[in-house]
């Protein structure tokens, strides 16, 4: 499964596109370019920002080819029929286009951000329920994210992907089940004490971000 996925990504990768970058050498060496760790994986942040900045249809197609099949699989594993999953995956990607203006690359990776949209669509389609959302923080007029933060968010996301792959099979399946809605809250409580260690550094990063933000706000007030 994993091997097939990797091969497909490599085949999908348009050669020479500036959305693709080599293995990183120095975290902060070149400003103005979003980078990721792996050689074959496109820099999805850069791709999504092209959609956000210039409604770039080719960039969107690239996102679509990678993420739509993953959203579809996620929805089918969550219990959606194939036609419903297909329809919802298209719908989620259309939402990605419209919501691209709200994407903030120093707060979440593209996969995480798309996951939240797919999750909300699933709640709507399968549970027919409303999802209360936390209020948005006022991040102020400082809309240009810090490159180092963006880089760190991507790195952290890579590490998390890696950590998930390295979990023992049984634990990894439990984590997946929790996200696919196959575990109730009490089952999650009983069975998955496990991802916590995996996500500790991600929590620290998110906290740092929030504190920086609060400090900035305190200074500007």
């Amino acid at each position: 499964m994993m091997l097939t996925a990797i091969r497909t990504e490599i085949q999908d990768a348009p050669l020479g596109s500036h959305g693709y970058v080599g293995r990183e050498t120095n975290a902060h060496a070149s400003k103005g370019r979003w980078r990721v760790t792996s050689e074959a994986e496109p820099d999805w942040t850069a791709v999504l920002l092209r959609v956000r900045e210039s409604q770039d249809r080719a960039a969107f197609a690239q996102l679509f080819h990678h993420f739509a099949p993953r959203i579809k699989a996620f929805l089918m594993k969550s219990g959606a029929s194939e036609p419903l999953a297909e329809e919802c995956a298209q719908d989620v990607m259309a939402t990605v286009w419209h919501k691209a203006v709200q994407f903030n690359p120093d707060r979440a990776s593209v996969a995480t951000w798309i996951f939240t949209i797919a999750r909300n669509r699933r709640i709507d389609a399968l549970r027919k329920a409303r999802r209360p959302e936390p209020e948005d923080l006022d991040w102020g007029p400082d809309q240009e994210p810090d490159q180092a933060d963006v880089y760190e968010t991507q790195q952290e996301s890579e590490r998390l992907n890696h950590a998930l792959r390295l979990l023992p099979e049984k634990q990894r399946i439990l984590v997946e089940k929790a996200f696919l809605g196959e575990l109730t809250h009490s089952e999650i409580a009983a069975e998955t004490g496990l991802p916590i260690g995996t996500i500790k550094s991600r929590i620290r990063l998110a906290l740092d971000k929030l504190r920086q933000h609060l400090d900035k706000k305190a200074v500007t007030k």
């Binding site: 499964m1 994993m2 996925a5 497909t8 993420f67 739509a68 099949p69 993953r70 959203i71 579809k72 699989a73 996620f74 089918m76 594993k77 194939e82 999953a85 297909e86 995956a89 298209q90 707060r107 979440a108 990776s109 996969a111 995480t112 951000w113 798309i114 996951f115 939240t116 797919a118 999750r119 936390p134 952290e156 996301s157 998390l160 992907n161 950590a163 998930l164 984590v175 997946e176 996200f179 696919l180 991802p195 995996t198 996500i199 991600r202 929590i203 990063l205 998110a206």
Partner: peptide, 19 residues
């Protein structure tokens, strides 16, 4: 919460079904 959503992002990457 942001960290758990990042785990969701990682789970999303694990499998695919052709469109």
């Amino acid at each position: 919460l942001a960290a758990f959503e990042a785990v969701g992002g990682a789970v999303l990457e694990t499998s695919q079904v052709e469109m």
